[in-house]
Amino acid sequence: MTIKKIFNNNAIIAENSDKHEFVVMGCGIAFKKNIGEKVDERLIEKTFILKGKDASEKFKMLLEDVPTEYVSVCYDIIEYAKNVLDAKLNDHIYVTLTDHVSNCFKMIESGIIIHNPLIWEIKKFYPKEFKVGLKAIDFIKDELGKDLPEDEAANIALHLINAQINNSLNNVEDAAKQAKMIQDILNIVKYTYNIVLDEKSISYERFVTHLRFFFHRIDKSETVDTAEEDFLLKQVREKYKDAYQCMLKVQKYLGKELSDEEKLYLTVHIQRVSKKN
Protein backbone atom coordinates (compact mmCIF):
# COMPACT_ATOMS: atom_id res chain seq x y z
CA MET A 1 0.00 0.00 0.00
CA THR A 2 1.44 3.38 -1.01
CA ILE A 3 0.72 6.97 -0.03
CA LYS A 4 -1.29 8.87 -2.65
CA LYS A 5 -2.17 12.02 -0.67
CA ILE A 6 -1.23 13.41 2.73
CA PHE A 7 -3.77 15.43 4.77
CA ASN A 8 -1.61 15.70 7.88
CA ASN A 9 0.74 13.54 9.95
CA ASN A 10 -2.14 11.31 10.98
CA ALA A 11 -4.33 10.97 7.86
CA ILE A 12 -3.61 9.96 4.28
CA ILE A 13 -5.14 8.50 1.16
CA ALA A 14 -3.49 5.18 0.40
CA GLU A 15 -3.62 3.06 -2.74
CA ASN A 16 -3.23 -0.71 -2.92
CA SER A 17 -1.83 -2.82 -5.75
CA ASP A 18 -5.30 -2.95 -7.40
CA LYS A 19 -5.40 0.87 -7.51
CA HIS A 20 -8.20 0.99 -4.91
CA GLU A 21 -8.09 4.04 -2.65
CA PHE A 22 -8.60 4.12 1.11
CA VAL A 23 -8.57 6.87 3.69
CA VAL A 24 -6.18 5.65 6.38
CA MET A 25 -5.57 7.15 9.82
CA GLY A 26 -2.96 6.45 12.46
CA CYS A 27 -0.74 8.40 14.82
CA GLY A 28 2.27 9.63 12.82
CA ILE A 29 1.42 7.53 9.77
CA ALA A 30 2.56 10.31 7.42
CA PHE A 31 5.33 11.78 9.60
CA LYS A 32 8.37 12.51 7.42
CA LYS A 33 6.72 10.61 4.57
CA ASN A 34 6.23 11.58 0.93
CA ILE A 35 3.69 10.71 -1.74
CA GLY A 36 4.57 7.42 -3.41
CA GLU A 37 6.26 5.90 -0.36
CA LYS A 38 5.00 2.72 1.25
CA VAL A 39 2.58 2.93 4.17
CA ASP A 40 3.85 1.58 7.48
CA GLU A 41 0.89 -0.74 8.06
CA ARG A 42 1.85 -1.18 11.72
CA LEU A 43 0.71 2.41 12.30
CA ILE A 44 -2.76 1.98 10.76
CA GLU A 45 -5.50 2.52 13.35
CA LYS A 46 -8.56 3.22 11.21
CA THR A 47 -9.37 2.48 7.57
CA PHE A 48 -12.29 4.08 5.74
CA ILE A 49 -13.63 2.09 2.79
CA LEU A 50 -16.48 4.12 1.32
CA LYS A 51 -18.11 2.32 -1.59
CA GLY A 52 -20.11 5.26 -2.94
CA LYS A 53 -18.00 7.64 -5.03
CA ASP A 54 -19.99 10.68 -3.89
CA ALA A 55 -19.57 9.81 -0.20
CA SER A 56 -15.89 9.07 -0.74
CA GLU A 57 -15.17 12.40 -2.46
CA LYS A 58 -17.09 14.41 0.14
CA PHE A 59 -15.27 12.62 2.95
CA LYS A 60 -11.90 13.48 1.41
CA MET A 61 -12.96 17.13 1.14
CA LEU A 62 -14.05 17.05 4.78
CA LEU A 63 -10.61 15.86 5.85
CA GLU A 64 -9.13 19.05 4.41
CA ASP A 65 -10.98 21.19 6.97
CA VAL A 66 -11.90 19.01 9.97
CA PRO A 67 -9.41 18.08 12.73
CA THR A 68 -8.37 14.42 12.58
CA GLU A 69 -9.50 13.79 16.14
CA TYR A 70 -13.08 14.75 15.19
CA VAL A 71 -13.03 12.25 12.33
CA SER A 72 -11.60 9.61 14.64
CA VAL A 73 -14.22 9.97 17.37
CA CYS A 74 -17.05 9.92 14.81
CA TYR A 75 -15.58 6.73 13.36
CA ASP A 76 -15.71 5.16 16.84
CA ILE A 77 -19.32 6.33 17.30
CA ILE A 78 -20.41 4.89 13.95
CA GLU A 79 -18.69 1.53 14.53
CA TYR A 80 -20.27 1.35 17.99
CA ALA A 81 -23.68 2.18 16.48
CA LYS A 82 -23.35 -0.54 13.85
CA ASN A 83 -22.71 -3.15 16.53
CA VAL A 84 -25.37 -1.99 19.00
CA LEU A 85 -28.10 -1.34 16.43
CA ASP A 86 -27.12 -4.36 14.31
CA ALA A 87 -27.89 -2.23 11.28
CA LYS A 88 -26.28 -1.25 8.01
CA LEU A 89 -25.66 2.47 7.73
CA ASN A 90 -25.34 4.49 4.55
CA ASP A 91 -21.72 5.52 3.87
CA HIS A 92 -22.73 9.19 3.94
CA ILE A 93 -22.99 8.91 7.76
CA TYR A 94 -19.19 9.34 7.95
CA VAL A 95 -19.57 12.69 6.19
CA THR A 96 -22.78 13.97 7.75
CA LEU A 97 -22.01 13.02 11.36
CA THR A 98 -18.44 14.33 11.26
CA ASP A 99 -19.58 17.56 9.65
CA HIS A 100 -22.35 17.93 12.24
CA VAL A 101 -20.05 17.35 15.20
CA SER A 102 -17.50 19.81 13.83
CA ASN A 103 -20.13 22.51 13.30
CA CYS A 104 -21.61 21.78 16.73
CA PHE A 105 -18.28 22.56 18.38
CA LYS A 106 -17.98 25.79 16.39
CA MET A 107 -21.44 26.95 17.49
CA ILE A 108 -20.86 26.07 21.14
CA GLU A 109 -17.55 27.95 21.09
CA SER A 110 -19.47 30.93 19.71
CA GLY A 111 -21.98 30.68 22.56
CA ILE A 112 -24.79 29.33 20.35
CA ILE A 113 -26.85 26.42 21.68
CA ILE A 114 -29.46 24.95 19.32
CA HIS A 115 -32.19 22.82 20.87
CA ASN A 116 -33.65 19.82 19.07
CA PRO A 117 -37.46 20.18 18.89
CA LEU A 118 -37.79 16.46 18.07
CA ILE A 119 -36.01 15.17 21.18
CA TRP A 120 -39.27 13.93 22.74
CA GLU A 121 -40.25 11.92 19.63
CA ILE A 122 -36.75 10.52 19.22
CA LYS A 123 -36.68 9.25 22.80
CA LYS A 124 -40.11 7.71 22.33
CA PHE A 125 -39.81 6.10 18.90
CA TYR A 126 -36.06 5.45 18.65
CA PRO A 127 -34.81 4.58 22.16
CA LYS A 128 -31.89 2.47 20.82
CA GLU A 129 -30.58 5.25 18.61
CA PHE A 130 -31.01 7.77 21.42
CA LYS A 131 -29.01 5.57 23.79
CA VAL A 132 -26.27 5.39 21.19
CA GLY A 133 -26.43 9.20 21.03
CA LEU A 134 -25.93 9.38 24.79
CA LYS A 135 -23.00 6.98 24.52
CA ALA A 136 -21.59 9.15 21.72
CA ILE A 137 -21.58 12.13 24.10
CA ASP A 138 -19.50 10.00 26.48
CA PHE A 139 -17.07 9.13 23.66
CA ILE A 140 -16.68 12.80 22.82
CA LYS A 141 -16.11 13.70 26.46
CA ASP A 142 -13.52 10.95 26.94
CA GLU A 143 -11.64 11.45 23.66
CA LEU A 144 -11.93 15.20 23.13
CA GLY A 145 -12.69 16.55 26.60
CA LYS A 146 -15.74 18.43 25.30
CA ASP A 147 -19.16 18.44 27.00
CA LEU A 148 -22.29 18.30 24.86
CA PRO A 149 -25.94 18.74 25.97
CA GLU A 150 -28.56 15.97 25.76
CA ASP A 151 -30.01 17.64 22.67
CA GLU A 152 -26.88 16.52 20.83
CA ALA A 153 -27.63 12.90 21.72
CA ALA A 154 -30.91 13.39 19.85
CA ASN A 155 -29.12 15.07 16.93
CA ILE A 156 -26.66 12.19 16.65
CA ALA A 157 -29.57 9.74 16.86
CA LEU A 158 -31.23 11.57 13.95
CA HIS A 159 -28.14 11.09 11.81
CA LEU A 160 -28.13 7.37 12.62
CA ILE A 161 -31.85 7.06 11.84
CA ASN A 162 -31.42 8.90 8.55
CA ALA A 163 -28.47 6.66 7.64
CA GLN A 164 -30.66 3.60 8.16
CA ILE A 165 -33.59 5.06 6.21
CA ASN A 166 -31.38 6.20 3.34
CA ASN A 167 -29.77 2.77 3.24
CA SER A 168 -33.19 1.10 3.05
CA LEU A 169 -34.21 3.28 0.10
CA ASN A 170 -32.56 1.07 -2.48
CA ASN A 171 -33.05 3.32 -5.47
CA VAL A 172 -34.39 6.60 -6.76
CA GLU A 173 -37.85 5.06 -7.24
CA ASP A 174 -38.12 4.20 -3.52
CA ALA A 175 -37.14 7.73 -2.50
CA ALA A 176 -39.57 9.23 -5.02
CA LYS A 177 -42.40 6.99 -3.77
CA GLN A 178 -41.82 8.07 -0.18
CA ALA A 179 -41.68 11.75 -1.17
CA LYS A 180 -44.99 11.42 -3.04
CA MET A 181 -46.68 9.75 -0.06
CA ILE A 182 -45.52 12.53 2.25
CA GLN A 183 -46.87 15.13 -0.16
CA ASP A 184 -50.18 13.25 -0.44
CA ILE A 185 -50.58 13.25 3.35
CA LEU A 186 -49.77 16.96 3.52
CA ASN A 187 -52.44 17.52 0.87
CA ILE A 188 -54.97 15.57 2.92
CA VAL A 189 -54.33 17.91 5.85
CA LYS A 190 -54.39 20.99 3.62
CA TYR A 191 -57.71 20.14 1.95
CA THR A 192 -59.35 18.87 5.16
CA TYR A 193 -58.73 22.18 6.89
CA ASN A 194 -58.81 24.28 3.71
CA ILE A 195 -55.55 26.00 4.66
CA VAL A 196 -52.15 26.75 3.19
CA LEU A 197 -49.49 25.02 5.28
CA ASP A 198 -46.65 27.21 6.48
CA GLU A 199 -43.63 25.30 5.18
CA LYS A 200 -41.26 27.46 7.22
CA SER A 201 -42.90 26.71 10.55
CA ILE A 202 -41.40 24.39 13.15
CA SER A 203 -44.68 22.44 13.28
CA TYR A 204 -44.47 21.74 9.54
CA GLU A 205 -40.83 20.67 9.76
CA ARG A 206 -41.57 18.35 12.69
CA PHE A 207 -44.55 16.84 10.89
CA VAL A 208 -42.56 16.07 7.73
CA THR A 209 -39.71 14.61 9.77
CA HIS A 210 -42.18 12.50 11.72
CA LEU A 211 -43.68 11.19 8.46
CA ARG A 212 -40.28 10.18 7.09
CA PHE A 213 -39.55 8.12 10.18
CA PHE A 214 -43.17 6.96 10.31
CA PHE A 215 -42.82 5.16 6.95
CA HIS A 216 -39.63 3.54 8.18
CA ARG A 217 -41.37 2.28 11.32
CA ILE A 218 -44.52 0.89 9.72
CA ASP A 219 -42.38 -0.94 7.15
CA LYS A 220 -40.50 -2.63 9.98
CA SER A 221 -43.55 -2.96 12.31
CA GLU A 222 -41.61 -1.37 15.16
CA THR A 223 -44.53 -0.13 17.28
CA VAL A 224 -46.22 -1.98 20.14
CA ASP A 225 -49.43 -0.68 21.72
CA THR A 226 -49.68 -0.21 25.48
CA ALA A 227 -52.50 0.67 27.86
CA GLU A 228 -50.95 4.15 28.18
CA GLU A 229 -51.22 4.77 24.42
CA ASP A 230 -54.83 3.58 24.42
CA PHE A 231 -55.69 5.95 27.29
CA LEU A 232 -53.91 8.92 25.71
CA LEU A 233 -55.47 8.26 22.31
CA LYS A 234 -58.97 8.41 23.84
CA GLN A 235 -58.13 11.76 25.41
CA VAL A 236 -56.66 13.16 22.19
CA ARG A 237 -59.62 11.86 20.16
CA GLU A 238 -62.00 13.85 22.37
CA LYS A 239 -59.85 16.96 22.62
CA TYR A 240 -58.80 17.20 18.95
CA LYS A 241 -61.80 15.80 17.10
CA ASP A 242 -61.03 17.43 13.75
CA ALA A 243 -57.39 16.32 13.83
CA TYR A 244 -58.45 12.78 14.72
CA GLN A 245 -60.86 12.65 11.78
CA CYS A 246 -58.10 13.93 9.52
CA MET A 247 -55.80 11.20 10.85
CA LEU A 248 -58.44 8.60 9.90
CA LYS A 249 -58.33 9.95 6.33
CA VAL A 250 -54.57 9.46 6.35
CA GLN A 251 -55.03 5.92 7.62
CA LYS A 252 -57.54 5.20 4.82
CA TYR A 253 -55.07 6.59 2.28
CA LEU A 254 -52.36 4.26 3.61
CA GLY A 255 -54.73 1.29 3.39
CA LYS A 256 -53.72 -0.27 6.70
CA GLU A 257 -54.76 -0.16 10.34
CA LEU A 258 -52.29 1.89 12.36
CA SER A 259 -51.29 1.17 15.93
CA ASP A 260 -52.76 3.33 18.70
CA GLU A 261 -49.30 4.81 19.18
CA GLU A 262 -49.05 5.94 15.57
CA LYS A 263 -52.64 7.25 15.59
CA LEU A 264 -51.86 9.24 18.71
CA TYR A 265 -48.77 10.99 17.39
CA LEU A 266 -50.16 11.56 13.89
CA THR A 267 -53.21 13.22 15.44
CA VAL A 268 -51.04 15.44 17.64
CA HIS A 269 -48.87 16.49 14.69
CA ILE A 270 -51.91 17.24 12.54
CA GLN A 271 -53.34 19.33 15.35
CA ARG A 272 -50.08 21.28 15.68
CA VAL A 273 -49.60 21.95 12.00
CA SER A 274 -53.23 23.01 11.49
CA LYS A 275 -53.31 25.16 14.61
CA LYS A 276 -50.15 26.95 13.51
CA ASN A 277 -51.94 28.07 10.38
Rank of each mutant, 00 (worst) to 15 (best):
V189H: 12
I78F: 07
V196T: 14
F125K: 03
K135P: 01
I108F: 10
L186Y: 07
L160F: 02
E129M: 06
I140S: 11
Q183I: 09
I112K: 09
I122C: 00
A157N: 07
A81Y: 10
K146W: 09
K82Q: 10
A175F: 10
E129K: 03
K88A: 12
M107W: 08
S203V: 02
A175K: 14
H92M: 08
E152I: 01
K190V: 07
Q183H: 03
E79F: 12
A157E: 02
N171Y: 06
N170D: 08
N194R: 12
N90A: 13
L186V: 12
I122D: 00
D174G: 09
K177A: 08
L148H: 06
F105E: 13
A179Y: 09
I140K: 07
D138A: 02
K177G: 05
C104I: 12
L118F: 00
T96A: 09
K124G: 00
E199P: 00
K88R: 15
E129N: 02
D198E: 10
V84G: 02
I195T: 14
K106N: 14
K131A: 01
T96R: 12
L158H: 03
F125Q: 02
V172Y: 15
V189M: 06
T96V: 07
I93P: 11
K124Q: 00
L158G: 01
L169H: 04
K190G: 03
I165F: 02
G111T: 03
M107G: 01
A154L: 01
I77S: 04
L144M: 15
H159N: 06
Q178R: 15
S201T: 03
D99L: 14
Q178N: 11
D151H: 12
M181F: 10
K177F: 14
K146I: 15
Y204P: 03
Y80S: 07
Y193C: 02
Y80G: 04
L89F: 14
Y94K: 02
V132Q: 03
K141V: 04
W120G: 00
K190S: 12
F125H: 04
L148Q: 06
I108N: 11
L169W: 12
L197N: 04
N166Q: 10
T98H: 10
Y75H: 15
I140W: 04
I114Q: 04
V101T: 15
F130Q: 00
K146L: 13
H100M: 05
K141N: 05
K146Q: 10
A179I: 06
P149M: 04
Q178V: 13
V84P: 07
K146H: 09
I202L: 11
Q183M: 11
I137D: 02
C104G: 06
